[in-house]
């Protein structure tokens, strides 16, 4: 067991897979020589060389096109899109090409690749470098979507994503990069489509993702101090989605709260609420409540950004009010 930062876990996860499989290659802007603008990929160029760790021009379409064409012809590329906001300039490759290739070719061709990206707010970068876009991604049939919240999950889900025969978008949360966590020794391989129950409580189920997971856990502590015990579930994977774990928990607690960083409309929690509303309706004792960033662009000023994102106080207050 070692303690790693979430930042260090990125390179550790990529390196684990590159050591295992020579067909794994890695490309992106400033990822090789500079080790990544968030220093997440330091050391990879030195270990694996410039043929497998490639600094690209600022050309997101060229990056994802290269990853896709390589994936179709025998490699297992990992591509970095530096900030997830930049998916907007290469969405054609993601939504029209990579996601649809296997279906449009009726299984003849596939894109076993990983696109990893720095997602989310908290760094005061303003509206174009802070978005949580996991809900854009999950709206497109044909891509898998994961968003780990701890260093161990990051390594394990990176490995599962690289080994998956289908395209996976892996969202790292930028505000989690300095956080630390225990990482088991040896190879770590996780599973896509498995949520994790982090805390058990009988009064409500709280479902969260990425940066919202530690905030939900903090809220759970605050609620416990007031005698309210909640279950906290880290969704981890939006596609495939572990609805069974969520539905089983709601069957126990009878109440559901989602804690989402994405802006309100069509956030991932809306899909979970819809599923619980359809499949778990008779287990519910009260309204489902979504706690989200409002439907706003994000502001840069710390005070305004902090007001926009759900925090432990807001989660706590919302749950207390809803539970009466």
């Amino acid at each position: 067991m070692a303690e790693l930062t979430y930042r260090e876990a990125v390179a550790a996860g990529i390196a684990q897979e590159m050591r295992r499989d020579p067909s794994v290659v890695f490309l992106g802007e400033d990822v090789a020589g500079a080790g990544g603008v968030f220093k997440t990929t330091a050391g990879l160029l030195e270990e694996f060389g410039p043929d497998r760790v490639v600094d690209t021009p600022i050309s997101e379409q060229a990056i994802l096109g290269a990853a896709m064409g390589a994936a179709m012809t025998g490699l297992r590329p990992i591509a970095e899109i530096m900030f997830s906001d930049f998916f907007a300039v290469c969405w054609d490759l993601v939504a029209n090409e990579i996601a649809k290739t296997r279906y449009m070719t009726d299984g003849m061709a596939g894109c076993p690749l990983v696109i990893r990206s720095g997602n989310g707010a908290g760094l005061r970068f303003g509206a174009q470098h802070s978005q949580s876009i996991e809900n854009w991604a999950m709206a497109v049939p044909g891509v898998k979507v994961v968003a780990p919240s701890t260093p161990a999950d990051l390594i394990g889900l990176m490995a599962a994503s690289v080994r998956d025969p289908d395209p996976v978008l892996l969202f790292e949360h930028k505000a989690l990069y300095p956080t630390k966590g225990d990482v088991p020794d040896g190879e770590i391989v996780d599973e896509l489509g498995k949520a994790r129950v982090l805390r058990d409580g009988s009064d409500a189920t709280v479902v969260a993702l990425a940066l919202m997971v530690p905030r939900a856990m903090e809220a759970a502590d605050m609620l416990a101090a007031d005698g309210i015990e909640v279950t906290v579930i880290d969704v981890r994977s939006l596609v495939p989605l572990d609805t069974a774990t969520i539905l089983a928990s709601v069957a126990e607690t009878s109440r559901l709260f989602t804690v989402e960083e994405n802006p309100r409309l069509c956030g991932w929690g809306a899909e979970i609420c819809s599923i619980v509303g359809e499949d778990g309706f008779w287990d519910l004792d009260g309204p489902i409540v979504r706690i989200t960033t409002p439907h706003l662009p994000l502001a840069s000023a710390p005070k305004l950004e902090d007001l926009a994102l759900p925090d432990a106080d807001r989660v706590t207050a919302t749950i207390k009010t809803a539970l009466g």
Partner: peptide, 29 residues
């Protein structure tokens, strides 16, 4: 794929980038 016909692409431009990927892959392999 068995004929090397890696697809017809209906959004203008994308497949030029994708062809690069196949070319890169050939180099790496």
């Amino acid at each position: 794929v068995e004929h090397g016909m890696m697809g017809c692409y209906a959004i203008i431009g994308a497949h030029l980038c994708i062809a690069n990927g196949a070319a890169w892959s050939a180099k790496v392999r």
